[in-house]
Nucleic acid binder design. Structure first.
Length: 109
DNA sequence: TGATTGACCAACT
DNA sequence: CAGTTGGCCAATC
């Protein structure tokens, strides 16, 4: 069975290593639709009602900004989680984002 | 079924 | 610098 966009998103996000972050656009691209970064957010949004536990806090926007922080149930939750894993956060942005950036294609291959 | 929305991205005004 | 527009695709109303 072909994996849907959702399925791919879940798969990729669940594979994000601790202390790393990735972007919606990258996930969307790997999932098969580059322009569908919004769908990634949609998928993650559905996670709130699902029994799975994906590190969605490790997914940030293209600029390394924590755009989804408000959807974690709080404004500090996302930054707290990331900083707890070793990812330094400056307000709503990941410090040294390029250095923390995780490329799914390298791990999933 | 049609219209709206959505945790984005890029470009333009 | 802030606001708008177009694009992308699927879910929800």
């Amino acid at each position: 069975m072909k994996q849907n966009f959702y399925q791919k998103v879940y798969e990729i996000v669940s594979k994000i290593p601790k202390g790393r972050v990735t972007t919606y656009g990258t996930i969307a691209e790997l999932a098969g639709s580059k322009g569908s970064a919004r769908m990634v957010g949609w998928a993650l949004n559905s996670l709130k009602s699902q029994p799975v536990n994906l590190p969605a806090h490790r997914v940030v926007n293209r600029n390394g900004l924590l755009t989804g922080k408000h959807h974690f149930g709080g404004e500090c939750i996302m930054s707290e989680l990331l900083s707890n894993e070793g990812v330094k956060i400056n307000g709503n942005r990941v410090i040294n984002f390029e250095d923390y950036f995780w490329n799914p294609t390298e791990t999933i291959y």
